[in-house]
Amino acid sequence: MEKFGFSLTKARVIDYDANDRSIVSYILEREPSLNLCIECGCCSAACTTGNFTGFSLREIHILLKRGENDLVRQKIRKCMLCGKCILVCPRGVNTRNVVFLAKQAFTKNEGYEF
């Protein structure tokens, strides 16, 4: 679809104030270690799923924090919960629980079924 002018750039902008950050709040309440992520990408580099397809846990973390939930929802089911990311994370983020809680949050808050 062709769009011109302002609307085209708007889609690129993260509208922080308009975005819904209830999902990340739900996760942070239960797994505060998500706050410790320094975006080093080690989880994504080790990722079993990431070896096959576009899936980056680091990206998921930052998207959640910015409230860009649609992108997360599309991607998060790809995680195999294998746990390699936990072993490599230099900040001790409990990455598996972040995925687990995100799925839970989507099911609860938005009635989204995985």
Partner: peptide, 20 residues
């Protein structure tokens, strides 16, 4: 941050990283 290093058949090191 590199997550792991392996060697391939040519005996070259292979580093796995996310180009964040």
């Amino acid at each position: 941050k590199v997550s792991e290093v392996a060697v391939n058949i040519n005996n070259r090191l292979v580093a796995k990283v996310e180009d964040t």
